[in-house]
Design a protein around this nucleic acid. Structure first.
Lengths: 244, 244
DNA sequence: CGGCTTCTTGATCAAGGTCAACCTTTGTGG
DNA sequence: CCACAAAGGTTGACCTTGATCAAGAAGCCG
């Protein structure tokens, strides 16, 4: 496709997108350093890749996916024109999701400036970005109710380990033990299982001597085992959360 | 709990959170208008609620959930100290997720200023916010691979309808028809099903005269029927996405 | 016209849901 | 301090949903 200057961007005219002021537009135009055409079925970002560009999908379809420990593919989102690609690894450092084209695509390549420049220059812009992110998150939330892949005991182990790590990061867990107020019903609604099957799964984790819940407390007996069993491992991000 | 001034906030000292500069801290202190203590099992935000406050969870556990059409509960996230509560409906206007306490909790009430003030005043702050959001989204992504609730044909109908609406918003669909490059395999990986079962589910949708896929095209035959069958309805947000 | 990949359909099997009974813990009033 | 009720947890029996395996049909190139 011929080079499309941002001023003539077909997408930008749609009501669905934030209308930019002139200086904002100038800023974005400056950001755009090129354009790439890729065929269908082409890998745009490999899962696990650290460094990579920041793109806007100008035309065509793509999808974002992750690979499970067992090598299965879980598609996480369908990307349509207007989607930003590569923001996750740019901001979070690493990304375990990859992106692949479904049709021939045209990408706008954004570069030269860092995101910090962007934040500093346009407060309102970042506002819109937060909004876009929240919207995506909500869609992800909605889809949460739809997906499955691992067996019940694995899901449970995964969740318990993830939660335990969050608590540990907050100083709310010590040496394989933490307070645990969730009941079977909560775990069931969380993992999309029945409460009776949560019982069975907990028994399985106990039997394997991985973890157990008792007296409002969670005990991680074998962290390595849990990790291996569930495929969960600590994400290493250099992030600092915002505390309002 | 006694009133905790932001300067003495126990959470704020943790490495996990962004360290504020003095003026930033002053801004946040100004934002905090009060503090609430609530018992366990208390509804903090009702699902579907439009107006509501913005809170920070200071101590205790809570969870965020949505209700499916059939009245089932899907817990979407466990909220721990430091989590922001109510940002979704503040920014997106409506929120279909509710929040309920698991233990007695203490909430910091943020008010007086709008988010726009916040964006305008602190560019870097919003940067951190974007980061936090992306982090959450990623967690949601990771959990995506874990959940399930509806039957296969329902999931499929839900997804097709959601996608169709996104395309329509982009002007890429017309009158019940759109181009559709995804194959069975993609749908399977997206919905956590086997490709053979996608075939069966498609047949079911065809049999019910709801939708069909043929010749790289998706036809929504009975939109109302699809909506009723899958429980999907257009989210009405006043949002404008950011197009970089 | 083969030789691909993709789609469809059938048969079989396992994971997990549902229902029901029973056990354990916690809480409450006498 | 006990008795009883109510809520939560465990276990078993049975059945539904969807995975897996396999064979055939349809497209889609070269």
């Amino acid at each position: 496709m011929n080079f499309v200057p941002c001023d003539e961007c077909a997408l930008r005219r749609m009501a669905r997108f934030k209308q930019f002021t002139l200086p904002e537009l100038a800023f974005v135009r400056n950001l755009k350093s090129g354009q790439i055409d890729l065929p269908a079925r082409h890998t745009i970002i490999r899962p696990g890749q650290f460094e990579g560009g920041l793109y806007t999908l100008y035309s065509g379809w793509a999808f974002r996916y992750r690979l499970t420990e067992t090598g299965q593919r879980q598609i996480v989102d369908i990307l349509l024109p207007g989607s930003t690609i590569g923001l996750q690894q740019l901001v979070l450092g690493a990304s375990d999701s990859g992106v692949e084209s479904l049709t021939p695509v045209t990408l706008c390549v954004l570069s030269g400036r860092t995101l910090d420049d962007l934040y500093a220059e346009f407060g309102a812009l970042t506002g819109a970005m937060v909004l876009a992110l929240l919207e995506d998150e909500r869609r992800a939330d909605a889809r949460l109710a739809l997906i499955s892949r691992m067996t019940a005991p694995e899901r449970l182990a995964y969740f318990l380990l993830e939660l335990f790590d969050r608590l540990q990061a907050l100083g709310m867990a010590s040496d394989g033990w933490c307070y645990f107020p969730l009941q079977r019903r909560h775990l069931a609604d969380l993992l999309g299982l029945s409460d009776t099957h949560i019982s069975r799964s907990m028994r399985e984790l106990r039997r394997r001597e991985l973890a157990s819940i008792s007296l409002n407390g969670l005990r991680i007996v074998d962290r390595t085992g849990m990790s291996a069993f569930s495929g969960y491992s600590l994400p290493q991000t250099r992030s600092a959360r915002l505390l309002l």
